[in-house]
Each structure stands twice: as structure tokens, then as C-alpha cells.
Amino acid sequence: MKIWLIFILAAIGTYAIRVSGLALFRDEDRMPPLVRRALRMIGPAAMGAIVGSSLLLDNGAVRPFGAWHVAAFAAVALAAWKRSLALTMLGGAAVFAVLLLAQGV
């Protein structure tokens, strides 16, 4: 039940954000400069936080260095090189799979 409520509220809030610019600003130039700059920064900042949370932490403790980190490095290199969503994910996953197999899992 809790998860349904979260997704429904997130859907309503996200839709409100999606139409906010159409309703409030009419076009990007009418947006206050500080708001515009803050909105540009929040994407990279939030994604950095999610990468940190899911990669460097494991159930609240720091994850020991291993295959996860190496796969992430490979993904960063691929993303910087090609900027392709599919290639980055598949390449990172392939590196991770090879490392797991090497460990004999």
C-alpha cells in the first residue's frame, strides 16, 4: 500500500512539474536566472547522489572495493566516449559479468 501511495504522489508531483514551465514562465527566458541555473545543477547533483548511494553504499555501510567499482569505471569511460545510454549500460554490465565469472560465481 505504501509503495502505491509513493508512486501515485510522485506521479502527481512530477506531472505538476512537467506543466509548471508551460503555465508559469511561458518560455525559458522569463525564468529567473537563479532558478534556471539551480534547475540545471539539480540533475547532475541528484544523479551523482544516486550513483553514490547505489554504488558506494550497501545497506548503509561502505561497499568494499570490487567488481561493482570496476564496472562503474568502465561505464564512466564508455559514457564519456560515446554518450550512448544502451552502450554504457551493456558495456558496464558485460565488464561486471566477466569479473563475476573470473571470481567463479
Binding site: 509513493i6 504522489l9 510522485a10 512539474i17 512537467r18 509548471s20 540545471r40 539539480i42 541528484a46
Partner: peptide, 21 residues
């Protein structure tokens, strides 16, 4: 949880303004 989702999705306000014209 909802607040986290909305902060991550705040960038859509920018897209929305860009699409307004």
C-alpha cells in the same frame, strides 16, 4: 521517498519552460 523523486525530477521544469513557446 516522494520528495526524493520530485527533487530528481525537478529538471522537468526546465524542459517545460523550453517547450512553452
Amino acid at each position: 521517498a516522494v520528495l526524493s523523486a520530485l527533487i530528481v525530477n525537478a529538471r522537468f521544469a526546465l524542459y517545460s519552460a523550453a517547450l512553452a513557446p
